[in-house]
């Protein structure tokens, strides 16, 4: 439901690394989205496409990696994957558990097209030529 806000935050972070993107500059952006972060990946893709389509980032692919919900059991100390809404240790059945992943939303990396790499790095030089 709030995928547009999330897409805007991703775009804000991209701009910090590529402040003045040129067309066909950023190939893809890898983001990890926890399965318990209440994000619909199709909707996030749609929103990201919508806010970048009229910019130099048109065509930049959002590569979403969905991360499983992992817990650490406070009883048997084992780490396991769980499937919400069942919040119990699959090994010993105890419900005193700590979620160690699956709620995160993180921008992992930005992949640039080779030929643009130098352009981005020397963006100011390029502007002078123009």
């Amino acid at each position: 439901m709030h995928e547009l806000s999330i897409a805007q935050e991703i775009l804000r972070i991209i701009h910090q690394y590529v402040p003045d993107p040129q067309p066909n500059c950023v190939k893809s952006v890898k983001v990890s989205i926890g399965k318990m972060s209440n994000i619909l990946t199709d909707s996030l893709n749609f929103c990201f496409e919508a806010i970048t389509s009229n910019s130099a980032l048109n065509g930049t692919k959002l590569e979403i990696i969905e991360t499983a919900v992992k817990i650490s059991c406070l009883n048997c100390l084992k780490e396991s994957e769980i499937e919400p809404p069942v919040f119990a240790c699959p090994v010993c059945g105890h419900n005193q558990i700590k979620i160690i992943s699956g709620t995160e939303m993180q921008v992992e990396e930005i992949e640039l097209f080779d030929e643009i790499e130098s352009t981005t790095a020397s963006g100011s030089q390029l502007k002078e030529k123009e």
Binding site: I6, E9, I10, R12, Q106, V107, E108, E109, E111, D114
Partner: peptide
């Protein structure tokens, strides 16, 4: 291929 490592939380500003 050039890859920039980011590893930043999407909601870091909030």
């Amino acid at each position: 291929m050039s890859v920039i490592t980011v590893e930043r939380k999407v909601l870091e500003k909030n």
